[in-house]
Amino acid sequence: MRISLAKLFFSFLKIGAFTFGGGYAMIPLFEREFVKRYGYLDEDEFYDVLVICQSLPGVIAINFSVFIGIKLRGKVGGFVAGLGVALPSFLIILVIAAFLFAYIENPYVEAAFKGVRVSVIALIFTAGFRLFKQNKHLFGVFMAVLTFALVAMVRLHPFFVILAMGAFGYITTKVGEVVRHASH
């Protein structure tokens, strides 16, 4: 069954417009729409694409939408899907940003945001805490502490630290393989 471009666009638009909480919150909705409801993709295929999108840089929801779009309707499909998923947030934020700058001087708005800023710190901390729990092994803790020190203390640029840590992970894995190979 071939999906029409209009339907592809509106499927992604709908998910982009009504999913709160970022890209990961969209994954179950993509699944419901494209796997369960219409059967454009099977379950295995869906999770394959998800794993691939998670291992590439960028916005996961966009990566995912473009990949699915390309798969279902080629390059035009990829464009239409990416546009559909991004358009609602783009428009909503434009309206809010314009509105916010008109009211940010208001003392009540400022007081509310003083509380909100603390909850944002807690949100980011919680995200770090959850990710930490998945990397509690010795090497993981070492890498996390090293990265923290390089970025927060030595003040290296995160861009280069990310590249360096990726390279470091690759090298240590390879060295580990060679050592294991040699000991057999």
Partner: peptide
């Protein structure tokens, strides 16, 4: 292999921004 380094590095990065 790259992600064995990246995943824990992200933890450090997030705490650095906190």
């Amino acid at each position: 292999a790259i992600f064995t380094g990246l995943r824990p590095a992200l933890v450090g990065l997030i705490f650095a921004s906190v």
